[in-house]
Design a binder for these strands. Structure first.
Lengths: 190, 190
DNA sequence: TGACAAGCCTAAGAGCATTAGGTAAATTCC
DNA sequence: GGAATTTACCTAATGCTCTTAGGCTTGTCA
């Protein structure tokens, strides 16, 4: 009997493919094992179980997304940076819906990959906000507002919450505009 | 053997309690049946299965939330209305986390309770935006932006996405402020 | 070549949703 | 009041899921 030659990385990659082409719920150890040409108990040699797999998938997504956002923000500031980050954020969520869904459950502990990937994400947004010259707690509030807005839009979109035949692109531009105006015009204790 | 005297309403109510005190994932037919003093196949006399139960739970939540928002918005306009709706929205999600989670999967068809409850929700926000005098497509964009912002904040909060020890109330006020400014100041094609 | 670790296997248990078919209680009708 | 019917619940069984235990085989390294 030949070996499949798996490792944790390959398992998570297969899980990501399944999650993004079907859905996160479609990612079962049984289906994943079948896809990898292996029996499901064999997966336990690489991952600690289904929950662990979901955590790894979410952590990988957060890392990927943070990387993409960092690239998008590079060399830009204020509205240009905000727009680039927002577009990249939405694009990632659209093209990786299952992985994006896996990112949602917050990590249990503050150590570990998932948590540090989450911090990376926050750091990128902090960098974008730098141009708006926000200080102390106000910068935190601003990060929360921006995250909430991008996350909420993205989620409503991926869940099919927007049903009217009116341009989602236009709606998203309005959202970015609202954020920019709020950040620039002193809602955050200017 | 005495009867439990269940009906669909009672089953959904028990599911809501379980979802809101533990989590949506904790709502299994087995646990629900145990709680109601019944064997799980008996639930099929009242609901069509687990998916159907989740749909009903989400529909009930949307109806409840829409009702609460309608009350909150009554007699107010612009910032006062927006603030009242936003506070009520967040309060509902905080006190009914499981039900709120059940509301997220959009209904499959446009008929049925879940879809009409969703339309109610949108209608309330449309009413709030009336004071801002938005027309045509711009009103739709505005509804989407407001929904996305409230939804995103609420979800990040309930998933423990905000970890820093800085007031969430303050952050939410900033979010409301940003929305108000955007709605008032012509981001939506004034 | 022999020791050993790594990778995969089968077998088995427990929990889940769901369907099929039977029984007893409540309700309706005469 | 008693019979027929509907309603509410039951047990039994199927097939899926994750997960643990223990064994075999393949590859690596001294």
């Amino acid at each position: 009997m030949p070996r499949a030659g798996l490792d944790a990385e390959a398992v998570v990659t297969a899980a990501a493919e399944l999650a993004d082409t079907e859905s996160l719920e479609a990612v079962t150890l049984a289906r994943l094992a079948h896809r990898l040409g292996v029996r499901s108990p064999s997966l336990y040699g690489h991952i600690a179980g289904l929950d662990d797999l979901r955590r790894r998938l979410g952590a990988r997504g957060a890392r990927e997304l943070a990387g993409a956002l960092t690239v998008a923000a590079a060399g830009r500031s204020r509205l240009a940076a905000l727009r680039a980050v927002a577009e990249t954020y939405r694009e990632y969520a659209r093209s990786h819906p299952g992985t994006y869904a896996a990112m949602q459950r917050a990590p249990d502990d503050d150590s570990g990959e998932a948590a540090s990937a989450g911090r990376e994400l926050v750091a990128v947004i902090v960098a974008v906000l730098d141009g708006y010259a926000l200080r102390g707690d106000e910068a935190i509030h601003a990060v929360r507002v921006v995250r909430a807005a991008l996350h909420g839009f993205t989620l409503l979109e991926s869940e099919g919450g927007f049903r009217l035949p009116i341009s989602l692109e236009d709606s998203y531009q309005r959202l970015i505009g609202v954020l920019d105006r709020g950040l620039a015009d002193g809602v955050f204790a200017g």
